[in-house]
């Protein structure tokens, strides 16, 4: 498949005189697991919001699933899944109710929705939590549920914004197994993370510094180019040059 899932050219977003994302150009191939790395405040979330149609770019172009982010934002939304950094399912509903709600929003109805709900509860292993409020679930389970819901409508691409933040290593491992499963189904995965070991699991990674993409390649190529033994070392070499602080 030569089609591109995401294609950006000189994509920029400014807030006043602050340039959060500075002319980034990159492609993501269909079915790829694309790691989007960067320090806090490097502009990852802003870039992701532009790609998901939550934020209008200041300049540059971007196409997601072949659709223009300026003109076809609503079309893009039908074709993507999104899991935000902040847990954003309804805390005061049960997992089942959340699944039914979002399934309904994506147009699943009746028998299909019921079947999908069962399938999802089983695949996440939430059988014993199905009647409990989401609020009472451990964070790791919540994140797994949020991930599953974000792909309930079989989107072409799923955007994951720090999906494993604050999650224990075992659950993180399980989470990445799920990401591989999803990827094997042909869904493109666009993921941001702070964990450099996770970056090694990606097909390709990009590293953002001060709103720019300073490096982009497969993890092995990057290590070779920067003469480093791990992605973490590559990251530190690049991030050291950053002028922006935490933010």
């Amino acid at each position: 498949m030569s089609e591109l899932a995401i294609q950006t050219e000189q994509l920029t977003r400014t807030f006043g005189d602050f340039t959060a994302v500075d002319r980034i150009t990159f492609d993501v191939k269909q079915g790829e697991i694309f790691g989007f790395l960067g320090a806090n405040g490097a502009g990852k979330t802003t870039a992701m919001k532009m790609l998901t149609g939550l934020l209008t770019p200041s300049s540059g172009t971007a196409k997601v699933s072949g659709m223009d982010v300026y003109k076809e934002a609503e079309g893009i939304k039908r074709n993507i899944g999104y899991m935000s950094q902040k847990f954003s399912l309804y805390d005061d509903l049960t997992p089942e109710e959340n699944i039914e709600f979002y399934g309904g929003v994506y147009g699943l109805r009746g028998q299909e929705l019921k079947q999908k709900t069962e399938e999802l509860i089983r695949s996440v292993g939430l059988e014993k939590f199905r009647k409990k409020l989401v609020r009472s679930l451990p964070l790791g389970w919540k994140q797994k549920l949020a991930f599953s819901i974000s792909i309930i409508h079989n989107p072409g691409i799923v955007f994951l914004d720090e999906p494993t933040g604050g999650v224990d290593p075992v659950t993180r491992r399980q989470f990445w197994e799920r990401i591989y499963e999803v990827s094997n189904q042909g869904i493109t995965v666009f993921v941001t993370t702070h964990y450099m070991d996770e970056a090694e699991y990606c097909d390709r990674v990009s590293i953002m510094v001060d709103g720019r993409i300073d490096a982009m390649d497969s993890p092995d190529e990057l290590k070779r180019t920067f003469n480093a033994s791990s992605i973490e070392e590559v990251f530190i070499q690049l991030a050291r040059s950053a002028e922006r602080g935490e933010g």
């Binding site: 998901t52 149609g53 939550l54 609503e74 939304k77 039908r78 993507i80 999104y82 935000s84 902040k86 847990f87 954003s88 399912l89 309804y90 805390d91 979002y102 929003v105 994506y106 147009g107």
Partner: peptide
């Protein structure tokens, strides 16, 4: 405030 609106805003909900 709790952020669920962001999740709704990336759906095709009109």
């Amino acid at each position: 405030e709790i952020g669920t609106i962001e999740q709704l805003n990336v759906t095709p909900l009109t």
